[in-house]
């Protein structure tokens, strides 16, 4: 697959790149630049509630005034108020811990799937993908049903006499972790499974022939070979979890908010667009390294095929 098409084949071929390129620049790249700009603006009580984005009619003088009007005051504000710092820390904590839990649950599941009889494998894959297609919102809501005060979990635990009185599961960190692990499990399992499937069985046999116990060859052979899949799955979970809004909003408590909730609140309740934009820019800055790692893993995976 290394063969490149001859240049002369069709001269108009490059035209296919134009529509998606233009679309992504207009609706993905440009919006980010606007976010950056607005994060540097002052909040004004107006509609829209910030100083104008650009006014080309004002010419060179206008441009100078425009640059002078940009200010870092919104960012300074973010660092003054502990609320924002706590939100970021909370998000980092939740994303890290839930990614770890996802690895611990996803790895045995993906490994078991890759080991399942050939006939069962397509069915298992569909079974794992299916919840991913059903609504995110519905899957989180399913847990509200179970975790609420007179929900199934409390009923079961009371019936089994494990607890004496109903526990408050909702509006807690536990509920958020359950919701996140549940929602993101397919994202962890599928890349891992695809990777484990390609595992060369003879390597494990060789290890066994040389007297390596199976549990040991799992850690010494399987895991290192599965590392790209593990990395892809972990990043595919970690990055969106960091900005997660729906799950902590429906399952978590309102005392400590994740950054997605804080951003949502600044935007919809406080209508402070510059602060919301600055929060988004800082979140993006936190995500740059994981996103670049993810893109490297992705493109390497595609070249390899």
């Amino acid at each position: 697959m290394k063969k490149r098409p001859a240049q002369s084949r069709s001269s108009g071929e490059w035209l296919i790149a134009v529509p998606p390129y233009v679309w992504l620049v207009a609706f993905f790249l440009v919006p980010f630049l606007i976010v950056m700009k607005i994060s540097l603006s002052q909040a004004v009580i107006a509609q829209p509630p910030y100083t104008p984005v650009f006014d080309l009619a004002a010419g060179w003088e206008g441009l100078k005034a425009y640059v002078r009007a940009l200010s870092l005051s919104t960012y300074a504000f973010l660092f003054e108020d502990e609320l924002y710092l706590f939100s970021y820390l909370k998000s980092l904590q939740v994303a890290t811990l839930s990614t770890l839990i996802l690895v611990l649950i996803g790895l045995p599941l993906a490994y078991g799937m890759a080991r399942a009889p050939d006939r069962a494998q397509p069915i298992l894959v569909v079974l794992v993908i299916l919840p991913f297609w059903t609504s995110f919102l519905i899957r989180v809501y399913a847990w509200v049903n179970i975790l609420q005060r007179d929900g199934l979990l409390n009923d079961t635990l009371l019936a089994l006499r494990i607890i004496d009185e109903p526990a408050a599961w909702l509006a807690s960190d536990t509920a958020v972790y359950i919701g996140i692990v549940y929602s993101y499990l397919p994202f962890m399992v599928l890349p891992l499974y695809a990777n484990l499937l390609k595992l060369d069985e003879s390597l494990l046999e060789a290890a066994a022939d040389l007297g390596c116990p199976r549990w040991k060859s799992f850690f010494l052979v399987t895991i290192p070979l599965a590392l790209p899949g593990l990395a892809a799955g972990a990043l595919l979970c970690f990055i969106p979890i960091l900005g997660e809004f729906v799950i902590p909003d429906l399952l978590g408590s309102s005392r400590t908010m994740m950054i997605g909730q804080t951003l949502w609140m600044e935007f919809f309740s406080n209508r402070d667009w510059p602060v919301a934009s600055a929060l988004a820019v800082v979140l993006l800055a936190l995500l740059i390294v994981p996103i670049m790692l993810y893109e490297t893993v992705q493109s390497r995976e595609i070249e390899r095929r």
């Binding site: 992504l24 919006p31 606007i34 919301a276 979140l283």
Partner: peptide
């Protein structure tokens, strides 16, 4: 640009498009 939206937190994508 093709791969980033796959993992981009939705709050960022939503906010930036609205501002556009």
């Amino acid at each position: 640009m093709v791969y980033a939206p796959l993992v981009m937190p939705e709050v960022i994508t939503g906010l930036s498009l609205l501002l556009l």
